[in-house]
């Protein structure tokens, strides 16, 4: 199977996992971090493999990864500072 097809299938599975967590109505810190973590992995897969940033200078991957870490980091902080 082509590598990109494998990536596609992984992305689909991770999406289903996120959906399942949502449907189960689970909440709390661990769950939130898991769902966010899954999103991080998915974005990295799209950026590295689909966008093919894997084959470019570290600068471009760095920018996207840096953005990802910053945004999801801020989201996590916003949630963590309020989770009861």
């Amino acid at each position: 199977m082509r590598p990109c097809t494998l990536i596609w299938l992984s992305l689909m599975l991770l999406t289903v996992a996120t959906y399942a967590i949502g449907e189960a109505g689970m909440g709390g810190t661990a769950v939130m971090l898991t769902v966010l973590g899954i999103a991080v992995i998915k974005v990295q897969m799209v950026a590295s493999y689909f966008m093919d940033l894997r084959h470019t200078r570290w600068l471009w991957r760095g920018i996207v990864l840096g953005w990802l870490v910053l945004v999801t980091g801020l989201i996590a902080i916003a949630y963590l500072t309020t989770i009861k």
Binding site: G22, V35, T72, I75
Partner: peptide
């Protein structure tokens, strides 16, 4: 696509 991948869990799922 990438933006939606963050948007979906953020708005629809995480609570």
């Amino acid at each position: 696509d990438l933006l939606w991948i963050i948007l979906f869990p953020l708005i629809y799922v995480i609570h």
